[in-house]
C-alpha cells in the first residue's frame, strides 16, 4: 500500500482524538483507500457526520466536510445529495448516532434508496460520552448505564438496513482491512443507499468494563463472534447460532431517489419553446 494518505488528510488536524487501540483509524484509512481507488475529484466528495467519536472523522479529511447534530447526519446528507446529485456523499456515524437518536433517519434513508454510503463505526458503546450502553451493546454486556449488564436486545445494523430497503448491505471488521476496503468500494459504487456495518473495538469503554482485554484480545473476541458469509452454506445452524455474518449480506436493484426525481422533473416540466 504505497498510496499517500496525506493527500486526503488535513495533516494539521493530527493527532486525532481516538484512544490507542481504537479501531476507528483503521476504518478511516479504509475509506481513504476506497476513495483513492475510485479516483473521485476531492472537490466533489462530501463527508457528513453526526456526533460521537466516529463523527470526528470528517474533520481529518480533506473533502467538503460537515459535522452536524447528533443522529442527524443522514438528514443533512439527503439535502446535499438531492440539491446537487453530482456530489458523492458519504456519511460516517457511530452505533448510537445511527441506530438510536438517528434511527428514524436511518430507516428512511434506506427506504428512499438515495445514493449515499453510510459507514457505521460500530463499537457497541457510546465512547465520546463515556461508555454508556448503545443500541448495539450485546445483551449482558456492561456499560456505564448498564452496570449490571444490558438487559435489552441489540439491533442488528445489517438486518435493519436490509429490511428497510438499502440496496447494498455489508459487515466488515477492522481486523480484516483488506476485506473492508473491498466492501467499502462496493458500497460507494452502488447506485443506491449503501450501509457498511464496520466493527471497531473500543478498548477504553467496551473492552475494559467487559474484561475483553486489549485491542488484539478484543479482535479475537469479535472474530469468534463472526463468520464469513461465504462459508455460510458449509456451516451448520448450530455453528452460526448467535454469530454475525461478515461480508456482502444483501444486494438489490431498486429505483434510486435522485434518479427518480429527475424522471419526475422530465415528466412534469413544461416543454421549452
Amino acid at each position: 500500500m504505497s498510496m499517500d494518505y496525506f493527500q486526503y488528510l488535513r495533516k494539521e488536524k493530527m493527532p486525532h482524538i481516538w484512544c490507542p487501540g481504537c479501531g476507528h483509524g483503521t476504518i478511516m484509512k479504509s475509506i481513504l483507500r476506497a476513495l483513492d481507488k475510485l479516483k473521485w475529484n476531492q472537490d466533489d466528495v462530501v463527508v457528513v457526520s453526526g456526533i460521537g467519536c466516529s463523527s470526528r472523522t470528517p474533520g481529518y479529511l480533506d473533502f467538503n466536510t460537515l459535522h452536524t447534530t447528533h443522529g442527524r447526519a443522514l438528514a443533512f446528507a439527503t439535502g446535499i445529495k438531492v440539491a446537487n446529485p453530482k456530489l458523492h456523499v458519504i456519511v460516517v456515524s457511530g452505533d448510537g448516532d445511527a441506530m438510536a437518536i438517528g434511527g428514524n433517519h436511518f430507516i428512511h434513508a434506506c427506504r428512499r434508496n438515495i445514493e449515499i454510503t453510510l459507514i457505521v463505526f460500530n463499537n457497541n458503546i457510546y465512547g465520546m460520552t463515556g461508555g454508556q450502553a448503545s443500541p448495539t451493546t450485546f445483551t449482558g454486556f456492561k456499560g456505564t448505564t448498564a452496570p449490571y449488564g444490558a438487559i435489552e436486545q441489540p439491533f442488528n445494523v445489517c438486518s435493519m438496513a436490509q429490511a428497510a430497503g438499502a440496496t447494498f448491505v455489508a459487515r466488515a471488521l477492522d481486523l480484516d482491512a483488506v476485506a473492508m476496503d473491498r466492501l467499502i468500494v462496493q458500497a460507494m459504487q452502488n447506485k443506491g443507499f449503501s450501509v457498511v456495518d464496520a466493527w471497531s473495538q473500543c478498548t477504553t469503554y467496551f473492552g475494559r468494563p467487559n474484561k475483553w482485554g486489549d485491542a488484539s484480545d478484543m479482535m479475537e473476541h469479535y472474530k469468534a463472534l463472526t463468520y464469513n458469509v461465504r462459508l455460510s452454506d458449509k456451516m451448520t445452524e448450530e455453528e452460526k447460532a448467535g454469530k454475525y455474518p461478515v461480508g456482502v449480506l444483501h444486494q438489490a436493484t431498486r429505483p434510486e431517489f435522485c434518479a427518480e426525481y429527475d424522471k419526475l422533473i422530465e415528466r412534469v416540466r413544461p416543454v421549452e419553446k
Partner: peptide, 26 residues
Amino acid sequence: PKLGGKFIQMEDEIASMGAIIGASLA
C-alpha cells in the same frame, strides 16, 4: 419539479430542517 427544483417529504421536522441546511450548503 416543474421548475427543475426539488421537493422532499422527510420523516420528521428534525430531518426537514437538516435537509434544508444540507441543500443550502450545496
